[in-house]
């Protein structure tokens, strides 16, 4: 889809939107599964075990997701660098708030905050998961792999993490940044993909606002719930 000059600005923004769409879907399912931990620990355990051991998810979906995240970040950084260079001398007096939202102008800042959070999140869950499954070679998902009656470990691990008030606060703060990122990103992805219509665009904007508030609020609720009940 590139022309003789390589990737053009429109292709770049389209790919940014495409990876964004993918991440929106991922986020929704992540939030839904986490919600199970509030409703039913057993259900959360079995779904987590399925997600963690199903080869299709582990070796097809997970690498695609990793690529999507990686691509979205790298492209975001490239775009930001290019856009900075497009205005080498800044205005002495500028009032950007008069014509655009804070969210739309600061996607790189909210994005970096989410990236920093991802570091912590990987340290908390992903790295221990890889360690248990692929280094220790324990694919059983049991609390005590020698004892089948011990039950699945996922809910226990999740709740354990949210005992710590500092970690819980960092997670909540990250979800606020996620919300700010989504409030612009959701509707922006549709515009970048060329999807705009007088009938549907107002609906997409409303949906984007709902998504950008409800999904992060869901994550916040789950974190607080486990902090209080843990």
């Amino acid at each position: 889809m590139s022309t003789h000059e390589g990737m053009t600005s429109i292709v770049r923004k389209f790919l940014m939107a495409l990876s964004g769409f993918f991440l929106l879907i991922f986020l929704l399912q992540h939030c839904a599964i986490n919600f199970l931990s509030v409703i039913s620990p057993d259900m959360f355990n079995s779904v987590s075990h399925f997600m963690g051991t199903n080869p299709l998810i582990q070796f097809a979906m997970q690498p695609i997701l990793a690529f999507g995240v990686f691509f979205h970040i790298i492209m975001g950084v490239i775009l930001n660098k290019m856009n900075d260079a497009a205005r080498p001398i800044k205005y002495a007096m500028n009032k950007p708030a008069e014509n655009s939202s804070w969210m739309s102008r600061n996607m790189v800042i909210t994005g970096i905050m989410i990236l920093l959070f991802l570091g912590l999140h990987f340290y908390d869950f992903w790295i221990p998961e890889l360690n248990v499954k692929y280094i220790q070679g324990d694919m059983s998902g049991l609390l005590d792999p020698t004892f089948a009656e011990s039950g699945l470990r996922y809910h226990e691990e999740l709740v354990h993490k949210f005992h710590n008030p500092i970690r819980t606060s960092i997670y909540i703060l990250a979800f606020v940044f996620l919300s700010l990122h989504l409030l612009h990103g959701f509707q922006s992805a549709f515009q970048s993909a060329g999807f705009r219509h007088s009938k549907y665009t107002p609906m997409i904007k409303k949906l984007g606002n709902l998504y950008g508030i409800i999904v992060p609020a869901g994550f916040v609720f789950i974190a607080i719930y486990h902090f209080i009940n843990g």
């Binding site: 600005s9 923004k13 856009n83 014509n99 655009s100 102008r105 996607m107 922006s188």
Partner: peptide
Amino acid sequence: GNCTNTGA
């Protein structure tokens, strides 16, 4: 620069 849909 690249458009990021700020709408300004």
